[in-house]
Simulated assay, not measured.
Amino acid sequence: MEKKNFKNHFIDEDEDIISSVYDKIELCKRIEGTVYTDIFLFPQIWSKLIEIEAELGVLIEAKGLSLESEKKMVAFKSYYSDERVEFPFKLIVVKTNSKFDSLEHRHYLGGILSTGIKREKLGDLIVEGKNCYAIIFDGLFEFLKLNLLSIGRSKVTVEEVGDRDIPQYRFEEKEYLMNSYRLDVIVSALISGSRNEALKMINSSQIMVNYRLKTNKSLTVKKGDVISIRRYGKHIFEGSEGETKKGKIKGKFKKYI
């Protein structure tokens, strides 16, 4: 597949990322081996790669923290290669024994990124109790272990874990009454704030839909869309549960916890 045609499958994505992915596919063909992406890709990219696998002329495998993970590393394997796919990442757990602080997803993420590690080198995170499970590039594990010693006032340790140690994602399900499916209306509901507050957040680039920044207040949110709100977490729109007698929409959402 020519590069121009390849890019046409990813019109809304970052051009540099898509070009890098294409180059890795071409490298895979040239060396007749296995090549891996050097960042974790969002689902709209890795799922499309799997969808067009036959057209690309290579075998494609995507893997993340768990089967349900959104961010995944992708392996491109030549049809002529017998080598086993060995993803260059490590599954880790960040542990704290603090009796006073209750660390959340945002605290762990901020702590890891404060070491200088770039977000794209880190996959999904799952927080369970006083542990945060994550996936990170192989070469960054020792660096993180040496440099992430505390998060806020809490001392932490970083250890490698196996597949079986990774917990399932947990969600909090909620229902909100809304006047429409517009982005500003939905953000207002999710933050339990006014439309003006929602508009300020949208206009100041604090809202992402399906991992892309959105500044169009009238954007229609559809079932399955992922809405990320700075300081308010990530939510999946599960659709409508009908309407009230007064015509309000019963919107159902799942929030990552």
Rank of each mutant, 00 (worst) to 15 (best):
K217N: 07
K248L: 15
L148I: 04
H9N: 15
K3F: 03
L183P: 02
P167K: 01
N210D: 15
G111P: 06
K250Q: 10
I17V: 15
D12Q: 13
G162D: 14
G116N: 10
F171G: 05
K130F: 11
E159Q: 12
S154V: 02
F10P: 11
G110T: 07
N131T: 02
C28G: 07
L125Q: 04
E160Q: 15
Q206T: 01
K77A: 14
R153S: 13
K234C: 09
I249G: 01
E175I: 15
D163P: 00
I227Q: 02
E13K: 11
K245L: 09
K222L: 14
F10N: 13
R195E: 09
E26A: 08
K7H: 13
E13Y: 07
I92N: 00
E70V: 02
A189F: 02
I45H: 06
G224W: 06
F253T: 07
L103I: 12
K214T: 06
D163M: 05
R212T: 07
A134M: 03
G139E: 15
I202E: 03
F237M: 06
E159H: 13
V85M: 09
G110E: 10
G111T: 07
A189T: 06
G162K: 09
K118P: 03
K3S: 09
E120W: 01
G224H: 07
N210Q: 08
E238N: 15
H105R: 11
E61R: 12
L91Q: 03
Y133G: 02
K3W: 03
Y181K: 09
V221K: 01
G224C: 08
V158N: 01
Y133H: 02
K174C: 10
L56T: 08
S180Q: 05
L109N: 04
E55M: 09
S81E: 10
F87D: 13
K121A: 12
E172S: 12
S81P: 13
R182C: 08
Y176C: 05
R106T: 10
K214Q: 13
Q168K: 14
T244E: 04
L140T: 01
K121D: 09
F143N: 01
P43V: 04
L213E: 11
S205V: 08
S154P: 03
E142R: 07
K99G: 02
N216W: 00
R106P: 03
F87T: 06
I166H: 01
T37V: 10
E83N: 13
G57A: 11
L144S: 09
Q168A: 15
N97E: 14
R170K: 14
F141E: 11
V85W: 06
K4A: 15
E142S: 13
C28F: 08
D23A: 14
N8Y: 05
K234Q: 08
